[in-house]
Design a protein around this nucleic acid. Structure first.
Lengths: 234, 234
DNA sequence: CGCGCAATTGAGTTATATCAAATACGGTGG
DNA sequence: CCACCGTATTTGATATAACTCAATTGCGCG
């Protein structure tokens, strides 16, 4: 976990204004005068595979936006094994539930090398009183998050295992910004789908035999997208 | 479906300010000067069991808050049976995805007699530029909706059927403001849990034999909450 | 009373979980 | 570079939960 802090306000503004993925992140629609309201440092932080970004039931003073990489949100509830409830990727917002002094509802763990912007709550709250554009940004993000939650329920948590594994792989592919993705452990895939690791393994092994899923030496996955889409199209 | 329109602006303000469940709905924190920004009529609409409040893939000029009753959100996707992705109750926000000219992502259908406030988009957008309190209200609601989505994934869509049925019944009970609730059809419960109607029926029949679930002549359910909570507590 | 729909029940099938073993793999130290 | 270890993955045999299909019962309503 490597941290780059940008201390001077003007530098942050510069950075955010010229951020290559600005159109994807929280501050997409902000204008110069909005940026001038940012008085606290926004850090850029790198995580490597398996790093814990935050734990469940913590209070935080930050939210995060993802610059690159994938992050899993794990929820552990009394009387049930943990379950991965969402995968977040570029532009997604992380830890939003910690606003308003709430505790975090998940443990967030990186699924690969991950690059985040760490934004103090105070930046959000001071902006939200002054920037209708941030407000709109937040609503758009809300809509996207809910759409993902719905997808997780209808496509990832229901149906035949073969279909669910296929859909999940396609989702990981889509969320990986065109690059191939680091294959999650069979156990993690099981926690996403709500099935056992053995069932996952049997399915992915079959996919590999069919050449629908190819895994390189460094554990990166490439898909036969057409074939996998076909698999459950009816 | 019966509509009560409050035409004069001052009357609306009066109504919202004195609304009995104001602390639960979108405008909970609004103050007098916020209300003065409302220039469009907010209608109060009643629906009966099975009424369609809106359909999927529509554009709407309204969002709704629920004054009383329960509403199911059904999502139908190509290549899959429909699935109920959420149940909304008192204070919950309905059709939020229709803001920003998006299409609705679900069909919303009442599960009982339902009372809604219908709020024109313009009320939200004009307030959001002027009322940080509405903004905060929306974020709180976002957090609640996501918590429900997570619950749906971890508790309603995973695990043994007996547990899932029990958890769903307990949820319906909790969302019913202390009153007993109208028992949904076995088919609807199946669409919530992602299982077949027969499996639901076998489970609820068993619960009735155990007296953990009692259904009155008019199809209202009362639970042995303790027993059902016990059922899957480990 | 009987029609129509929803709910229940039962028998047989299938998908997935469970349990146990074997194999592959990545990293470490020699 | 190789041998070894621990962990992850794959595979197989069996048990079980849930689905499917079909029949029956119950219930509200005309």
């Amino acid at each position: 976990m490597h941290k780059i802090q940008i201390k001077q306000a003007w530098t942050e503004v510069e950075r955010c204004q010229h951020c290559a993925i600005r159109h994807l992140v929280l501050f997409s629609d902000l204008q110069r005068k909005d940026f001038e309201l940012i008085h606290k440092p926004i850090d850029e932080i790198e995580y490597k595979l398996g790093d814990v970004i935050y734990k469940q039931n913590e209070t935080m003073q930050f939210v995060y936006t993802i610059r690159s990489g994938l992050v899993k949100l794990v929820q552990s509830l009394p009387g049930g094994r943990p379950r991965i409830v969402r995968i977040l990727g570029q532009g997604d917002l992380l830890g939003i539930e910690s606003l308003n002094n709430q505790q975090t509802k998940h443990m967030a763990i990186s699924l690969d090398k991950v690059d985040l912007c760490r934004i103090p709550h105070s930046v959000i709250t001071s902006l939200q009183y002054n920037s209708p554009r941030l407000h709109k940004s937040l609503i758009v993000r809300w809509q996207k998050t809910l759409a993902m939650a719905d997808f997780w329920i209808t496509q990832i948590s229901s149906g035949k295992i073969k279909c669910r594994v296929a859909r999940l792989l396609l989702l990981l592919d889509k969320k990986s910004e065109g690059e191939n993705f680091l294959m999650p452990t069979r156990e993690d895939i099981g926690l996403m789908l709500g099935i056992t690791t053995e069932s996952v393994s049997k399915t992915t092994a079959e996919f590999k035999r069919q050449q629908w899923l190819m895994i390189s030496k460094d554990n990166r996955a490439t898909l036969d997208v057409k074939a996998l889409e076909q698999l459950c199209s009816d």
